[in-house]
Design a protein around this nucleic acid. Sequence first.
DNA 1: TTCCTATAGGAAGATATCTGCCCATATGCT
DNA 2: AGCATATGGGCAGATATCTTCCTATAGGAA
Lengths: 117, 117
Amino acid sequence: MPRRREGRLVDLEVDILGAGIELQADGGDFYGFALAKRIADRSGASALTAHGTLYKALGRLAERGLVESEWEDPAIAAAEGRPRRRLYRVTGAGVAACRTETEQRTAPAPSPRSAFA
Amino acid sequence: MPRRREGRLVDLEVDILGAGIELQADGGDFYGFALAKRIADRSGASALTAHGTLYKALGRLAERGLVESEWEDPAIAAAEGRPRRRLYRVTGAGVAACRTETEQRTAPAPSPRSAFA
DNA sequence: TTCCTATAGGAAGATATCTGCCCATATGCT
DNA sequence: AGCATATGGGCAGATATCTTCCTATAGGAA
């Protein structure tokens, strides 16, 4: 993929923010693995078979301040007998960026003349 | 595999005890994953590609009191940024059982007549 | 000696996160 | 208009442990 168009989001990032906003609607934070399942479910196809893509995207979003994260208390993971999770939440900036991006996409391209023909 | 011959060990169990005794010689405990690598290395071949086999064998040995285990302090795993380990050590009984089994194997079968022919 | 069956072993996958490698390509620049 | 390249995406694998299935076989019993 090419240089990122200034301040815009790629598909996967929109998906993450969207799913994340949904997941955190009922109170808590969310974590990568759950996110992956959710996105895989609704995207139908077998995207993210290798989860590296997702974690890289989450990293990018974190760098831009659109999500925040912190490690789950290790004791909890230990008590539940599973690996630790990194807990994410979409920030205000993240919600805004997601909305903006979505709007920018629904308002199609500024067609050169009127329409086609 | 058939019923276990009363009080004896299968190959993998001997390997585990052997490798375990080696690993704990220099002080500390050992854990499954390291054990798997060690056994895989010296068994040359690609045994244990799926590690389930090893963990089941470790469970058997624990049940018979030949190894003991405890979970690593979750904080340590967290600090090192990796999954928790279960720490094992071979018990006295384990060392004894390993030796006995090895002897029983080096002293071959009580041949029916003298040798062959 | 023959047959039954308990049991070990292998494959596969769930649970979580992260890194490195390579490739395709849309973007921005000339 | 055309080209160079930054960058996202997919594949593969490391780190650890454990569960569920299915299968093959050696041991014991008849």
